[in-house]
Write a protein that binds this DNA or RNA. Sequence first.
DNA 1: AAGGTAACCTGACTGC
DNA 2: TGCAGTCAGGTTACCT
Length: 289
Amino acid sequence: MPELPEVETTRMGLLPHVRGQRISRVIVRDKRLRWPIPDDFSAQLEGATVNDIFRRGKYLLWECVKKESLRKQRPHGFVLSHLGMSGTLCVLPASTPATRHDHVDIVLSNRLLIRFNDPRRFGAMLWIPAQGTPHPSHPLLDTLGPEPLSDAFTAANLFKLSRGKSSRGRTVSVKEFIMNGHVVVGVGNIYASESLFRAGIHPIRAAGKVSLTRYQKLANAIRETLSDAIRAGGTSLRDYVKTDGEQGYFQLDAAVYGREGKACRTCQTPIRLIVQGARSTYFCPHCQH
DNA sequence: AAGGTAACCTGACTGC
DNA sequence: TGCAGTCAGGTTACCT
């Protein structure tokens, strides 16, 4: 399910229940996720306190401290979590019985637990020991592109990347280009279609043939699409305890995604569905060029 | 460097 | 009702 807005909504939902709480116990029922949960995962976490949760792309980083790490004035380490295609993290009373696909419980001192459920097991739950640096370094994080909602994400940067090394520019479609996490993080299959519609750009167009002016529109469209979705998801946070974290998603009012054959909200032309890189793309053949 | 493809999984839905 | 086939919101690894 989760693209950047869903991950951010999850982060904001977890934070008030988790911040400052001590982890009393960690239960790993199935370590077979995208990568195996490390054997020392529980041992590293138990007795630690969660200071904060940060988001980088679709990853969440849980900053954990322990007494001995505080003496060295640095965190003990970070939980690196990813929801994959079907993962959820939810807040539950610690006594809640586990059901199918409940792979990990993080039990807190406030009698709540954070439960990771993931039917397809494409998600991840890893441990990054603190290094000397303030921010954690990890192969999965180090090569990521800029955050779309930060100043580091600019049209000039998109344009430059799209031209690549060869003189004709990159031939990959602009839709697949913006879904590449090394170009910009957090734009998944739904928001890629939605952003291109908002920018009036045809999804098949080669990334290397999109002008700087149109990348300006696209960068703005991505920012607006993601911010709107976060705002919509945020409205469901009040009831985050006991929820599955999916409420925000269902509030999404898509302009094109999932609307094949339905009238474009701008021009009434039927929305079209094509396949790019084995993923569905929805667009309006009249509004997007 | 950049492009194409396979791989990791389960569940829901469609059509016969 | 059952079974085969298809699709699903992500990402890395590997081979040209």
